[in-house]
Amino acid sequence: MELDIWPGDFGLPSIDVSCLHFLACSKFCASPITYVTSTAPWNSPTGEYPVCVDRKGKGKPICDFDKFVEELRTNGQAVVIDGGLTPKEKAQIDAFACFLQQRLQPAVNHTLWADDLNYHTTTHYWYTSKLSFPYNLYYVERRRKRVLRTLANKNVNQMMLDALQALNMLSAKLGDNKYFYGDKPTSLDALVFGYLAVLLRVPLPNDRLQVHLSACPNLVRFVELIISIYLPSTDSKQSKSNTFWQTRVAKAIKQKEASAAQPKEEEAEDLPIRDAILFGLGALTLSLIFAVHSGIIEIQMEEEENPIVKD
């Protein structure tokens, strides 16, 4: 089997939340899947990564996390994921998966795609630099529109509060344990890891969720542990790109602070400039009309008269 994912950055094997879900889950059960980092999402049936393809030709490509877990469980991997759990624990894993989807996913999507400053500083730049020119603009715009549509009926403050509350609850649920259920990672760990790793590692100027997450030491430890055991980074150029992103984010923060410090002045300056331009244009037109009428500038119609003389 082959798993197509977005490439990684910032010490993560992939930048995308769902790609991390798939990756972590397959690594947990030591699956012999080959990972292909790819930037051609039009090859996927949904137009999105991740997608799990069976190259030997049997079965449809899998884009759904639940189906992927089911596939891993039934395909006789070395470690059966969620194998040693009681039915009640499995029930809770299903419930917590919905919990994450309802409480955390909107806020993470908002932070990455809907928040203007974050989007322009990081998300938009990252995706457009990975994809080739005309397609990249189409792709990011389409994906952003989709996210905005799903968030359209939600109040941003309520969404953030929900997410902060969800982080607190996950922190309480995890406690001092290594993983959420027992000493082996489960599919729930993969889901939580996906959301939290992106929040922790991707540099963003508006970092309300990130700040709150780093105040939950057990969740941070949980993410670092999974990265170090299952998904160690092999990227050597990382420090170089990190400084690039840090300066980019710092610049964006500075701009945000600057615009927050003097919003009124900008508005006050805005109108006179526009008025001045309009006034200037008006004055120029009037003086031209005056110049033409009073004969300072003469417009000669020689070319039109000549043919008449010839005839």
Binding site: C98, R103, A172, K173
Partner: peptide
């Protein structure tokens, strides 16, 4: 308790979403 509360919220999410 806080952990039970988290479980309750999780099941409410399940009903509410799924």
């Amino acid at each position: 308790t806080e952990v039970q509360l988290a479980e309750m919220m999780a099941h409410m999410s399940m009903i509410d979403l799924l």
